[in-house]
Simulated scan of single mutants.
Amino acid sequence: MQRTRCKICGLTRPEDIQAAVKAGADALGLVFYPPSPRAVTIDQAVELMQAVPPFVVTVGLFVNPEPEWVEAVLSRVPLDLLQFHGDEDEALCRQFHRPYIKALRMKPNLDPVVEARNWPTAKGFLLDAYQPGVPGGTGEQFDWKRFPGGTDQSWILAGGLTPDNIRQAVQATQPYAVDVSGGVEASRGIKCPTKMTEFIANLAPGDH
């Protein structure tokens, strides 16, 4: 069984990036969605990227962005991967010529395997809890029984994950990767080094 990878999202401080990397994070997420309490500006992102060492993937999160905003970010921030967390169609997601993942909010009766066919160029799909009017970061879980299994797709589990439930979550869903933000925070946008370390240690005991 392959190792479950981990992205820590919503980083806003260089010291949090350093702590996330030290804890063993595979990917780091920066939020370019101004309404979010974890959003960063382009200038902040430039500073944060300087704290990222080699072999760690950087991910930029967008929600229904104007293409010009994505281009403005990419002109100064050398992101490895884009993450679209709104109602973006495939044409928008792929036009930036960067690998991308698409977030799917697990609305009642949504079949993620069927829904994923709308983005054939996506590198993977992040499944998050559905809360009306909130594009992500709800801190809520969805029913893990709905998580797809037995497909070749790279499914990423998100929503309400914490150091206390991550081991159970991985056992229940067997995801390619997990994505955590609020579950490892001291306060909104401020990460807790202890929680990040515990989260990754509990994610796959002995792997890191």
Rank of each mutant, 00 (worst) to 15 (best):
Q2F: 07
T4I: 08
T4F: 00
C6K: 00
C6W: 01
C6E: 03
I8R: 00
C9L: 07
G10R: 02
G10Q: 02
L11H: 07
L11V: 02
P14S: 09
P14A: 02
E15T: 06
D16V: 01
I17C: 08
A20E: 10
A20C: 09
V21P: 00
K22A: 15
A27S: 07
L28T: 12
G29N: 05
F32Y: 13
P35C: 08
P37T: 05
P37G: 06
V40M: 10
T41A: 08
D43F: 06
E47A: 15
Q50S: 14
A51S: 15
A51F: 10
V52Q: 13
V52R: 03
P54R: 09
F55T: 04
V57Q: 13
G60N: 03
L61W: 07
E66N: 12
P67V: 08
E68G: 10
W69H: 15
W69Y: 09
W69G: 08
L74F: 10
R76M: 07
V77N: 05
L79I: 11
D80S: 15
D80Y: 10
L82K: 07
G86I: 04
D87M: 10
D87N: 14
D89W: 03
L92C: 14
C93Y: 02
Q95K: 14
R98G: 11
P99E: 12
I101K: 05
K102L: 07
R105W: 09
R105V: 03
P108H: 10
L110C: 12
P112E: 14
V113N: 11
V113I: 15
V114D: 14
N118A: 15
K123T: 09
K123S: 15
F125S: 05
L127M: 14
D128N: 08
A129I: 04
P132Y: 04
E140D: 13
D143A: 11
K145H: 12
R146C: 12
Q153E: 15
I156H: 06
G159M: 05
G160D: 12
N165Y: 01
I166K: 00
I166E: 00
I166L: 05
R167H: 12
V170K: 01
Q171P: 02
Q171N: 12
Y176W: 15
Y176Q: 01
V180G: 01
S181M: 02
S181R: 03
G182F: 07
G183D: 03
G183M: 01
E185V: 02
E185W: 03
G189V: 04
P193D: 07
P193I: 03
E198G: 08
E198S: 09
I200P: 02
N202R: 12
